[in-house]
C-alpha cells in the first residue's frame, strides 16, 4: 500500500530514477577511465626509456616476381592465412586445392565465402570447424581476379611458377609496452590511423577493455598462427573492414612489431578473475558513491509531513506510558 500511495508522483520518481541512473553511469565511467589512464601513463614512461634495437627476426624468402596478376593478388590477399606447400597457417595449405575441390565451388568460395557459410554449405561448415572457427573473409574480389587466383593456384600445382614462401616481413624487435600504448591510443600511429581500442577489446588494458565493434583480440596471436600469420596480417590487412581503414595508412614496421609483441604477451586463455573482481568492486563502490552524493545534495528534501507529525505524537505517548 505504501508503495502504491506514491503512485501519483510516479512520473516524478521515474524522471528522478532515470536521471540518477544516467548520472551514475557517467560518473562510474569517468572514474574507471581515470583509473585506467593513470595506469597507462605509468607504463608508458617506462617504455620510452628502453629503445628497441631493430633485429632481423626471420629471413625473408625469395618472392617470385613472375606469375602475373593471380600471383600478385595471392601475395596481397591470401598469404596472411594460407601457404602453398608450407603447411597450415590460419587457414589450410592450398597445395593441390584445385584438384581437391570442384572449380565452381572454389570460385564461389573465394568470391562469397560469407554467403556460403550463411547457407550452411557442408564443406564450408566443416572447414570453419576445422580451423578454429575463423571464417574465411569476403575479400571483395572481382570475377576476373578470382579466375586469376585460381589460374595461379593451378599453375603452382603444375610447377609452372614458384609457390610463394610465406614470410613475415623483416620486423624489428617489438616492445610490448609500446604496443600497449599504440593499442590504447596513448601514442598515435604514424600513419594517423585510429587506435585499436576504438574497435577492439583485449585483456590487460584496464578492467573495462576496449571497443566491441570488432572482435576481442585477447587470443588473436595464437589464433592467427603466431608471429608468421599475425605478422603477415598486420602488414597486409587483408580483411575488407580492416583494409578500408588501414589500406591507405599502413602500419610502420616498428609499430607492427610492438603490437605483435603486445598481443603475444596478452594471449592468455581468459581474463583473470582479478580483473573481474576489480570491475565488480568498482561498480559497487561507484554506485554507492553516486547514491551517497545524491543523498548529500538533496539531504534537505521533504520526506512526508503528516506521517512524521503523527509519529512524533505516538512516540511521545508511548514514552509517557
Amino acid at each position: 500500500m505504501d508503495e502504491l500511495k506514491e503512485q501519483p508522483w510516479l512520473p516524478c520518481s521515474c524522471a528522478v530514477t532515470s536521471g540518477l541512473l544516467i548520472f551514475a553511469c557517467g560518473a562510474l565511467l569517468g572514474l574507471v577511465f581515470a583509473i585506467t589512464r593513470t595506469g597507462q601513463s605509468g607504463s608508458g614512461s617506462v617504455e620510452s626509456a628502453a629503445s628497441p634495437t631493430p633485429v632481423v627476426q626471420s629471413v625473408s624468402a625469395v618472392v617470385p616476381q613472375a606469375g602475373g596478376e593471380g600471383q600478385t593478388i595471392f601475395q596481397q590477399k591470401c598469404t596472411a592465412c594460407h601457404t602453398i606447400g608450407s603447411g597450415d597457417l590460419v587457414g589450410p595449405d592450398l597445395e593441390g586445392v584445385v584438384a581437391r575441390r570442384d572449380e565452381d565451388w572454389l570460385t564461389r568460395w573465394i568470391t562469397t565465402p560469407d554467403q556460403m557459410l550463411a547457407e550452411n554449405d557442408p564443406i564450408a561448415t566443416q572447414l570453419l570447424q576445422q580451423y578454429n572457427n575463423i571464417p574465411m573473409p569476403n575479400l571483395s574480389l572481382t570475377q576476373s581476379q578470382v579466375a586469376a587466383v585460381i589460374a595461379y593456384l593451378q599453375s603452382t600445382d603444375q610447377g609452372q611458377s614458384l609457390p610463394p614462401v610465406v614470410a613475415a616481413p623483416a620486423l624489428p624487435q617489438g616492445d610490448p609496452a609500446a604496443g600497449k600504448e599504440l593499442f590504447t591510443g596513448n601514442r598515435r600511429f604514424q600513419s594517423g590511423g585510429p587506435p585499436c581500442m576504438a574497435c577492439h577489446s583485449v585483456s590487460g588494458i584496464g578492467v573495462l577493455g576496449g571497443g566491441v565493434l570488432g572482435p576481442d583480440l585477447t587470443q588473436v596471436f595464437s589464433k592467427y598462427g603466431g608471429e608468421t600469420g599475425l605478422g603477415t596480417f598486420l602488414s597486409t590487412m587483408p580483411l575488407p573492414t580492416m583494409n578500408t581503414v588501414w589500406g591507405q595508412r599502413p602500419l610502420a614496421s616498428q609499430e607492427q612489431a610492438d603490437l605483435m609483441a603486445f598481443l603475444g604477451q596478452v594471449a592468455v586463455s581468459e581474463r583473470s578473475p582479478e580483473a573481474i573482481l576489480q570491475l565488480s568492486a568498482l561498480t559497487i563502490i561507484g554506485t554507492a558513491a553516486v547514491l551517497a552524493l545524491t543523498h548529500l545534495i538533496w539531504r534537505y528534501r521533504l520526506a512526508g509531513v503528516r506521517r512524521p507529525l503523527v509519529g512524533q505524537r505516538s512516540r511521545a505517548l508511548t514514552a509517557q506510558r
Partner: peptide, 15 residues
C-alpha cells in the same frame, strides 16, 4: 528540474 525536493506527498494531502 527533474526532482523538486519540496513536494508534498499524497499522504500530506490525504489518500
Amino acid at each position: 528540474i527533474f526532482f523538486n525536493p519540496f513536494l508534498p506527498t499524497v499522504d500530506d494531502y490525504y489518500e
